[in-house]
Structure formats: C-alpha cells, structure tokens
Computed example of a mutant assay.
Amino acid sequence: MAEPLGVAAQLITDHLVEGRAVPGDRLTLPDLHEALAADADGYLTARNTTRDEEYRLTHRLSPHQRRAVLAGGTLPALAARTARSPRTARSAA
C-alpha cells in the first residue's frame, strides 16, 4: 500500500509541529477503514506506540482519496473501478 504512508504523514504533521510526536516514533492508524468510510465524521485516531499515546486527527481527504486509500493506492482503486464498469465488460466481450 503506497499511498496510506503519504496520507499518514499528512495527517500527523500538526502533531509533529506541536512536539507530541517526533520523527522516529512508531504510529499506527487503527480502525482506518471505519474512519474513512463514506459516512464517517472526518476524524480518526493515530496511536503512537512509542510513547503510548493516542491523537485524534482530522482528515481532509476527498471521497476519491478515501477510496484510493481504502483500496491500497491509486492503481488498485482504478483497477477496482474498471472491473466494476459495465463499459469495460462490454468492450472485453
């Protein structure tokens, strides 16, 4: 999964600036799929396993970006969308 790492870095920037997390800390994003669901509230939790802390984060991901992250990256998201497209199924026949 290439993109989630970039997304995680984008999400934790404020906490790095505030000094709550520092380079080298190990962060996880538990419940990422639930937090990025279409009906989610725009918040997610980052867990700093190095410091045994949790941070509530706000994301500003578009629906397209959410789908890409949940699919594992842009290419897997495009492949999934193409596989579901009736136009693609017709052209393959």
Rank of each mutant, 00 (worst) to 15 (best):
G73T: 11
P30K: 00
S85N: 15
N48F: 02
D14W: 02
A80E: 12
R67L: 15
N48G: 06
S85H: 15
S85P: 13
D31H: 05
E53R: 06
A92R: 09
L16H: 07
S85R: 11
V69G: 01
G72T: 09
A35R: 07
P63I: 06
D14H: 05
L57F: 08
T45W: 00
Q10M: 14
T74C: 12
P30I: 00
A79W: 06
A79T: 10
G42D: 10
H64E: 12
A40G: 08
H59I: 08
Q65I: 04
G73I: 04
T45Y: 00
R51T: 01
R20D: 03
T13Q: 15
L5A: 12
R87L: 12
R20M: 02
L44Y: 01
D14S: 03
A35T: 05
T13E: 15
P23N: 04
R56H: 11
M1H: 09
A71H: 11
V17N: 06
E18G: 12
L29G: 01
T82Q: 13
R81C: 12
V69M: 07
H64S: 04
L78I: 13
A93F: 08
T13Y: 13
P86V: 05
G24S: 06
R60A: 01
T82S: 13
A80M: 09
L78A: 14
L16G: 12
A9Q: 15
D14A: 14
R26V: 12
H59E: 08
E54P: 02
D39N: 10
H33P: 08
P4W: 05
R51E: 01
M1I: 07
M1T: 07
H64P: 02
S91C: 03
E53W: 02
V69E: 03
T49C: 00
D31I: 05
D14I: 03
T74I: 13
L11Q: 08
P76F: 02
R67A: 15
L36Q: 02
A9N: 14
H64D: 11
R20N: 07
L61Y: 05
N48E: 02
